[in-house]
């Protein structure tokens, strides 16, 4: 074997170290570039749209005149749809997570459920829209309503909530369950008094993340036939007269924030693009602040619980 001279070895080390340094700098630069894109996106939206943000933008209906158009029906629609989404996905998601972690036996049926959940998490959102169009709109005759949109988005975020619930429950040591059972608690009592309270942090984080995803989803809501021009509000869910709570709003036609923004982006006039930027700013603000809440919750609960 050839012996390398001291000089050659030194040269080799130098070149390897150089490569190492170049790669480190490259990594840092690429990472910063990604963050820069995020920054560019926020700045671009803000410079384009900030001028349109005003009180009337939030309280006006969409209009043919760009400077009179607002997002009232869009944000009200988004809020109501999120309400249906949360009401349908949260209980089912948590229940499914609890079942899979605490009750399920290791058998074929459980495996099938698990494979289905992983698979659903990878199905494109627009496919959920097609499914909802076939099932909710035409088979159940819900029409393109708030109920349909809420349920569609609920099914879409179900895998996220289930996975978050399972991961949160998995961190609870089994000694806690054994202690509860040892003093005579039933399985459900163990879950209700111990498992669920201790996993609240993780579950809440998952719920907030999933809702932030649902509020920005556009494709499935377009597919079920949500309208892009809505100049009225659904009937109020609460009134001062009996029976105080109404549910006819769930069958009302609607629009949501991302659809309103999409509608404005796809128009050729420059003025509507400004409106789109303003709507985008508000939408971005909503999702980013929800993500910030999730990050905060994660840190808060991590600090609080020490096994």
């Amino acid at each position: 074997m050839d012996q390398l001279s001291k000089e050659q070895i030194k040269k080799l080390i130098r070149s390897h170290k150089l490569k190492d340094n170049i790669f480190e700098i490259l990594g840092l630069i690429l990472l910063l570039c990604s963050l820069l894109v995020l920054l560019a996106l926020i700045i671009d939206l803000s410079t384009d749209g900030a001028a349109r943000i005003s009180k009337s933008f939030l309280t006006n209906f969409p209009s043919r005149f760009p400077d009179k158009a607002g997002i009232l029906s869009a944000w009200v629609g988004s809020t109501l749809v999120m309400f249906v989404t949360a009401a349908s996905a949260i209980p089912i998601g948590i229940a499914a997570g609890v079942y899979l972690e605490e009750y399920a036996k290791k058998n074929l049926f459980t495996a099938i459920i698990e494979i289905n959940i992983t698979n659903l998490a990878g199905v494109p959102s627009i496919i959920f829209g097609l499914m909802a169009l076939g099932i909710f709109v035409y088979k159940f005759n819900f029409g393109p309503s708030i109920l349909t949109a809420g349920l569609t988005l609920g099914l879409l975020i179900l895998p996220i909530i289930i996975t978050a619930t399972r991961e949160a429950i998995r961190t609870i040591p089994s000694a806690i369950r054994e202690a509860a059972m040892a003093v005579g608690a039933t399985k459900w009592q163990t879950v209700k008094h111990h498992v669920l309270p201790y996993s609240t942090g993780g579950i809440l984080t998952g719920i907030v993340i999933s809702l932030s995803r649902a509020i920005g989803e556009t494709a499935p809501v377009i597919t079920i036939g949500a309208l892009t021009f809505i100049a009225f509000l659904p009937n109020a869910p609460i009134s001062t007269e009996a029976p105080f709570i109404h549910f006819d709003w769930i069958f009302s036609p609607f629009t949501v924030m991302p659809i309103q923004m999409f509608n404005w982006v796809s128009r050729p006039q420059q003025e509507f693009h400004v409106n789109a930027a303003a709507a985008g700013m508000i939408l971005l603000l909503m999702t980013l602040s929800m993500n910030a809440i999730a990050i905060y919750l994660r840190i808060y609960f991590r600090k609080k619980i020490k096994w």
Binding site: G216, H273, L284
Partner: peptide, 11 residues
């Protein structure tokens, strides 16, 4: 970056 709504990315 993955949390930004896709319609905003479209814009």
């Amino acid at each position: 970056l993955a949390a930004v709504p896709t319609v905003v990315y479209g814009y």
